[in-house]
Amino acid sequence: MSFKTAAFALAFSLTGLSAAYAAEPAKPTVVLVHGAFADSSSWNGVVADLTRDGYAVVAAANPLRGVASDAAAVRTVINSIPGPVILVGHSYGGAVISAAADGAANVKGLVYVAAFAPEVGESIFDLTGKFPGSTLPPTLDKPVDLPGGGHDLYIQQAKFPAQFAADVPVAEARLMAVAQRPLADTAGAEKAVATAWKALPSWWVYGEADRNIPPAAMKWMAERAHAKQVVTVPGASHVVMISHPHAVSKLIETAASGN
């Protein structure tokens, strides 16, 4: 083979390799939405896994004021992302992503992490009481009055570790109790008006020892949504993304691959 022929063959090979790389689809951006009594730092372990594996990640701030208004806030984040999105919600954040993804063309899948997926006309309070097992109501502190009416709900700090994060080291759970962000009571009672889980594929993960949302309720919601995969974590609390971040990030990556 002459030098000229060899050079041409090499150039052709490199061109084909470049085309193959160019044809490889970009990984979707993962948008994480926290729930009540938590904040975006609750995703830290999951974020570490996803970024290590090459995913762009945005942990959206959830105002916790109302399903429709919170969904609108998350939708602004979704709209700012040019490529495909996998939308992930924890707890009350599940109701938010169910509304935020409605009609969003770039959202390709929903991941529910110990979360609610209400039907139109249902509230998260309705779903909490649909099955026995939630011990949350007696652990709530005295509601904090808000200007103009309404109240903010907190979990009593002394009861927070056992109720919310029983499988998290106690010292860490106590810090979470102090830093918890309240949910407006009107948000908990607000009826859903959109159900993106009917149009988009969904994946679910939750702990078998969840004391906030009865595991039976999450199993029922996942079945109703015809979830592609459901992962249950033995002994895990409501904050399964903190105590078992690898299980959660693995499922998110499965959703991102479309499997």
Rank of each mutant, 00 (worst) to 15 (best):
P25W: 02
S257H: 03
S42G: 12
S13I: 04
A7T: 01
D102W: 05
A115M: 02
T139M: 15
T186S: 14
P201M: 05
P147E: 13
A101G: 02
V120P: 05
S80V: 14
Q157I: 09
A48Y: 00
S249T: 01
G66W: 03
A247F: 05
L251A: 01
N259S: 12
S243V: 03
S13N: 01
D185N: 15
L32E: 11
S123H: 08
K4S: 13
K130V: 07
G16R: 00
R181N: 08
D210P: 02
P245R: 10
I97L: 02
A19K: 09
F131W: 13
A173D: 06
H151M: 12
E119C: 09
M241T: 03
F164A: 15
F160T: 08
E119A: 12
I213C: 03
L251I: 01
P214G: 07
P201C: 05
A100T: 05
G235R: 10
G235D: 06
D49C: 00
V31T: 06
W197M: 07
E122I: 04
P132L: 04
L64M: 06
V46Q: 09
A222F: 04
A189Q: 13
G150A: 14
P143M: 14
A6C: 10
R52K: 09
A9T: 00
A38K: 02
S91R: 06
P245N: 08
A95M: 09
P161N: 10
T76S: 14
L175W: 03
E253N: 00
T128C: 05
V205Q: 01
W203R: 10
P63A: 06
P214S: 14
H244R: 05
D53Q: 00
A255I: 01
L175G: 09
G150H: 15
G149T: 13
E190C: 04
K198C: 02
A7C: 03
L64W: 02
A6G: 11
A60V: 04
V96S: 04
S98A: 12
A222I: 11
F12V: 11
I155V: 15
L50F: 00
V120Q: 14
A19H: 07
F12S: 11
G188P: 06
T186K: 14
A114R: 07
A61L: 12
I155T: 12
D49M: 00
T76Q: 15
P234L: 08
K130M: 13
L32S: 06
L50E: 02
G83Q: 15
T128N: 09
A73P: 04
G16W: 03
D141P: 13
D185W: 08
G235V: 05
G235E: 06
S2D: 13
A236K: 08
A56I: 00
A22F: 14
K159E: 13
E190D: 01
T135P: 08
G89Q: 09
P28F: 11
D167V: 03
V58F: 07
A199L: 08
R181H: 09
T15R: 15
A162I: 12
